[in-house]
Lab assay of single mutants.
Amino acid sequence: TYTYKLTDEEASRRAEDEWRNRGYDVRVRNNNGTWEVEVR
């Protein structure tokens, strides 16, 4: 499981799409203004 911490929502969406396209399960959540993109 990888977790990315990003401050930019758009960057988190791009990361989400990119990993999803590669067949990974992705979750995005906002934690106090930081976007966490979790990849498994």
Rank of each mutant, 00 (worst) to 15 (best):
V28E: 02
E18D: 10
V39K: 00
E16M: 12
R22D: 04
R22P: 02
R14W: 08
V39R: 01
R22H: 07
V28L: 05
N30S: 07
N30E: 14
N30I: 10
N32W: 03
S12Q: 04
A11F: 05
N32T: 03
W35C: 01
D25G: 04
R27A: 13
V28R: 09
W19G: 02
D8G: 07
R22N: 06
G33W: 01
R13T: 05
N21S: 13
L6R: 02
V39N: 00
E38Q: 09
E38M: 09
K5I: 15
G33I: 01
T34P: 01
D17T: 14
D8I: 04
A11P: 02
A15F: 14
G23S: 01
Y24M: 04
K5G: 06
E16T: 09
E36H: 06
K5V: 14
G23I: 01
E36S: 05
Y2Q: 09
V26M: 00
R20D: 02
D17L: 15
A15Q: 06
D25L: 11
N21F: 08
E38N: 05
T34I: 15
E9F: 10
Y2V: 13
W35H: 01
A15H: 11
E38K: 04
A11V: 05
N31T: 09
N21V: 08
E10N: 09
W35R: 00
N30W: 14
R27Q: 14
R20G: 04
E9T: 04
Y4N: 03
Y2A: 08
E36N: 03
G33Y: 02
R29W: 13
W19E: 03
G23K: 01
V28K: 03
R20Y: 04
E16V: 14
T1Y: 13
G23Q: 01
T3M: 09
Y24W: 06
G33L: 02
A11Y: 05
G23F: 02
R20T: 08
V39D: 01
E10L: 10
R22L: 12
T1K: 10
R40A: 08
R29L: 12
E18W: 15
N32Y: 06
N21Y: 07
Y4W: 09
R14Q: 11
G23M: 00
V37N: 00
R20W: 03
T34D: 07
R27G: 07
T1G: 10
N21H: 10
D25H: 12
E36G: 00
E36D: 04
V26G: 00
G33V: 01
N32G: 11
N32M: 08
S12W: 07
R40M: 12
A11M: 08
T34Q: 12
D8C: 08
R40V: 11
E36T: 10
D25T: 11
V28T: 06
G23C: 11
R29S: 14
